[in-house]
Structure formats: structure tokens, C-alpha cells
Design a protein around this nucleic acid. Sequence first.
DNA 1: CGTGTAATTTACAAGTTTTTAACATCTATT
DNA 2: AATAGATGTTAAAAACTTGTAAATTACACG
Lengths: 229, 229
Amino acid sequence: MKPKILLVDDEIPIITLLQYNVEKAGFQTDIAQTGPEALDKAINNTYALIILDIMLPGIEGTEVCRQLRERNIDTPILMLTAKGSESDKVTGLDIGADDYLTKPFSPREMIARVQAILRRVTEQVDTNQAICMGQLTIFPNQYEAKINGDTLDFTRKEFDLLLYLAENKGLVLSREQLLNAIWDYAFEGSTRIVDVHISHLREKIEANAKKPRFIQTIHGLGYKMVSVP
Amino acid sequence: MKPKILLVDDEIPIITLLQYNVEKAGFQTDIAQTGPEALDKAINNTYALIILDIMLPGIEGTEVCRQLRERNIDTPILMLTAKGSESDKVTGLDIGADDYLTKPFSPREMIARVQAILRRVTEQVDTNQAICMGQLTIFPNQYEAKINGDTLDFTRKEFDLLLYLAENKGLVLSREQLLNAIWDYAFEGSTRIVDVHISHLREKIEANAKKPRFIQTIHGLGYKMVSVP
DNA sequence: CGTGTAATTTACAAGTTTTTAACATCTATT
DNA sequence: AATAGATGTTAAAAACTTGTAAATTACACG
């Protein structure tokens, strides 16, 4: 799906110009003509970017920007400023905009800036490949997992174990295999380490479940992770 | 070395006028008199700017412009148009020109536009982009960050570290990774230098927070920056 | 050459995780 | 149902990691 960009300006000709060029560059658009409308839309939707004029009736663009940041809405913002005065530029960035553009601007430059901002943002998404298992999503590079949107924290061994189970979901893994994979070397003798960590893991990811769901015990063999409990 | 500008027009008197003024303004020049010649030169050389007449024998100026953009050649283009009707074509602004100028024009105005475009382009290289993380905004080019509008001061290492964390926000970065990224080479042995700088950073950006917020410690692994603490 | 600032090392307390060990509970088999 | 072995759970000990203050070194600048 194409990324969606919110265009905020009170002048129809500017909106039209923006819309034409932004859509031509391969984005979807949404429009707001006043500060309150922009706030409302930005809060209740997910945009890839907001192009925000500084001069708006009602609430100023700077104020819209500041209020969004206050609510920890991190959508990248490209500010449009009318004058080239330094003060405008500084205040634009001060309040949490990602970049600014002085009117009049060439459409090409505008698109270049839009893409520069998005490039920076999407570069991160690349590194975010996740492992999905029903309600549970694991983010290997962030040492983090989410269940129904709630973030779960793990200790290192717990996370390594969870990740290994998830990477081999559906397979029965013996304690020995898990020891070799996660503890780097074969523990001598018998140890219950794996069981203890499994127990902790279950406590975290199966908090409100009576029976083990994601992690199943295969008696006499080991453990197995299943994606749809 | 002086920036080089490609002048494209089929009328020698116009070329001469352009050349005289552009060179007087401190640029080098190159000349093309037909569309194909212009395309060839623009593709095989690097110019700071192209001044392109819309009326050309063979291929029209608009077509030259479109073909260049199609090849992802981003050299800024200033179009020259004869009358209002022609200028419409350009103001449609979908052919990728950066600005246009209606003939007849004053040399002074032409130079002003040339310089405006070049300023915009060079500015774009690395000005104003900020990194935004909720209340915290980082200005990479200014060695400065603001939190709720208050300016924070950092030492160089602190800022480098903050910036690197911010650029990789969400990702867990090991001490070794940070050392490689910010200290340029791998420190031998064990050192606590990263921790010490993290401690200083936190003191500055998390002044009134009990628990670490922006910078999280991932025990046994390293640190991770999050935009919504 | 001092002086002041920043960078680094050191040291140790405080904090967290991992492991062990012990006991409770469960499962399969007779 | 009894039993032996396997698994679940918990708490405390051990091992390791991190936070930070203070001491030391490096370094730029007058």
C-alpha cells in the first residue's frame, strides 16, 4: 500500500499544487484546511508524513506541531514557511518539525525533501523484521516482543530462548539442543536451567492462560513452540 | 573550482547574453544549441545548473527536461519561456524544472534566480534536517538538541553518541558497536567509557525523570534509544 | 606553561540475571 | 493406584553487569 501524506494548508491553490505533485510521486494524500482539523486527523490516523503550513486559521502550524509532539506523535513533519526569515526556520525546527521548506518552492525540491525524510524513517523499518506468531510478535533487533500491542521485557537468556524456539517453531527441541544453541557449549551433567527459563518465559507470554499455549512440553523429549496455540 | 552551468538556446544572441552575464557572476559555462546536444552534454557532464530555453529545434526544452528527469538526472533546471502561454506549460510544474524565467528578462533577475536555485540546492545537502523523538529534537548539523524548546549543550563525544543512538532508535546497540561507530576503532580490552558517556547523556536529557527514559539499558547487551519513553 | 575543559580510567556499590538446589506436581507405565 | 522418572516452580546463592563519583590523563588555548 502506498504511504499516505497529510497536507495541511488553508489556501486551496497550494493544496492543489501539493496534492498533484505528492500523488504523482506515488503517495496517497489526505487534506486538512485548519489547525484543529489537522490535529484531529493526525491524531486519529497514521500518516507517513505531514506537510504543514505555518500560517493557518485558528491554530497556527507551529502550535499543531508542538501539540502533536507533546502527545508523543512522532509522525515526521515538513513545515512550509512563507517568509525566508531565519526566525521562522528556527521556530519551525524548535518545536519538533523534521525539516522546513520556504515558499515559493519547486515541486521537485519539495518531493526531494519528502523522500529524504521518509528515507531516514524507513531505513529503520528495514532492520525491524519481526517474527510473528499469532498474537505474539518478536523483534530480534530490538530485544523486544509484543503481545496484543503490549510490550514485553525479557532478560537476555529468556529472549535468546524465545527467539530460538520461535525460529524453529513447530519443531520439538530437546534440552540438549537448546543448551547447545543458547549456552554455546554443552553443559556437563544434568541441569534444570532450561526448564527454569521456560517457566519464566511462560509466565511472561502466557500470563492469562491456564495451559501452556505457545510453548508446549513434549514429555520425555523437550519443548516445542506453536504459532497458533 | 567554479561551478559550471550549461546554457541551452538556439539563438546565438541569447547565448551570448547569457554567457556574458553568467560568467561575469563567476561561473563557468558550456553551450548547447539543440535539444539532442543538450541532452548529450547534460547526461555526460556534471553541471551545477542548466539554463534551458523552451523553444528548441528538434526536441523541445520541456522534452529535454522530462527525459533528464526520467534518467534520474537531478541537475537543477531553469527554464526560459517566451510568453505567458509557454510559461503555462512550465507552471504546470510537472516536467521537473526548478524555476522558470519569462523572456525578455533582465540579466540581474536571471542571475538572482540562478543563485536562488543553487542556494536552495546546496542548502538542501545538509541543512535543517532534524531528528525528532517526542519532546526531544536533535539538530545534527548544529551540535545541539532541544527538549521542550530548551537548548541542551553537549560535548562532542556525548553528542556523537546521542546522534548515533537517535539515528538507530529502537535498535539495541552493543557497547562494541558504539565504540566502533563513535571511536572509529575497536578499543582493546574492556573499557567502561560508553557507560560513562551514557550516564552523562542521561543526566542531561532525562534530568527530571526517575527512570531512564529515552535511553534504555538492555542488560547484557547494550543500549537502545526509544522515541516514546 | 598554567588553566580549564573534555575524555578516559579506576574503583566500588548497587542492581540484575543466571544458576543451583529443593520440593511440589505431573505423566506414563505397570 | 503405586511408582519412578520427568517436569514445574520458587527462593536464595553465585556470577555477572551496570551506574556513577572521583581520580587521572589528554589536550587545546591563551
